[in-house]
Design a protein around this nucleic acid. Structure first.
Length: 198
DNA sequence: TCATTAAAGTTAT
DNA sequence: ATAACTTTAATGA
């Protein structure tokens, strides 16, 4: 949880509902609100000139989306698209900043969330700079798995579709699938009824 | 080697 | 039923 929901609500945040494929904001929009997910999944993405999607991030319960851009005078460099049915708290930028100014602890909470996102970017950038699809996918899975305690092999069920894994690593689905199959042969992952265990 | 295209099978809504 | 996802195979850069 980035910021306690009750604090946001008493500050005047409104609860908004979104349905899958709805767009919360678009690349080029001027940021006006702070958004925090109560429940559901949202992806931050871009589409290249050929229409291929690159997913910057997938966010869910308790996480905020696009907050980093609020701190700079720039339009969004990505879209926020709803994956699953969502309820989201929305607080106007100016109220959000007043809130932070009155509560230094909240600044720290936002900071720590921001740092986590930045950490993800560093980790992913390292593996994405590799041409090898196996290294890219492992970089993604290593990061995701690092948030759980049990680090033993095959204890982590990858909570992503192959499509999403491909979009997060800049691969095409088919390559992601082939690579995952190869990783299964190499005993890096296990596959049980299409679920990937890492 | 990987991306792309096409085609077909599978799962979720 | 229909859409979304998964898989395989062929072809080309």
């Amino acid at each position: 949880m980035v910021i306690d929901e009750n604090i946001l609500i008493s500050a005047g945040a409104e609860t908004r509902r979104y349905t899958p494929s709805e767009v919360i904001f678009c690349e080029g929009d001027i940021p006006t609100y702070y958004y925090q997910i109560i429940k559901g999944e949202i992806k931050l993405n871009n589409y290249n000139e050929e229409g291929k999607e690159f997913i910057q991030n997938i966010l869910s319960d308790g996480e905020s989306c696009g907050e980093s851009i609020l701190f700079i005078e720039k339009p969004y460099p990505m879209n926020a698209e709803v994956i699953t049915e969502c309820s989201v708290l929305r607080l106007h930028k100016s109220v959000f900043f007043n809130l932070l100014n009155q509560n230094p602890e909240l600044y720290m909470e936002v900071n720590s969330f921001l740092s986590e996102r930045l950490y993800y970017k560093f980790i992913m950038m390292q593996s994405l700079s590799s041409q090898n699809p196996s290294i890219r996918l492992r970089g993604l899975m290593d990061y995701l798995k690092s948030s759980q305690k049990d680090l033993s092999p095959y204890s982590f069920l990858v909570p992503l579709t192959r499509q999403q894994m491909a979009s997060l690593t800049g691969l095409c689905v088919e390559t992601a699938i082939r690579t995952i199959k190869h990783m299964e042969r190499d005993k890096i992952v296990r596959i049980e009824n299409r679920k990937i265990l890492y």
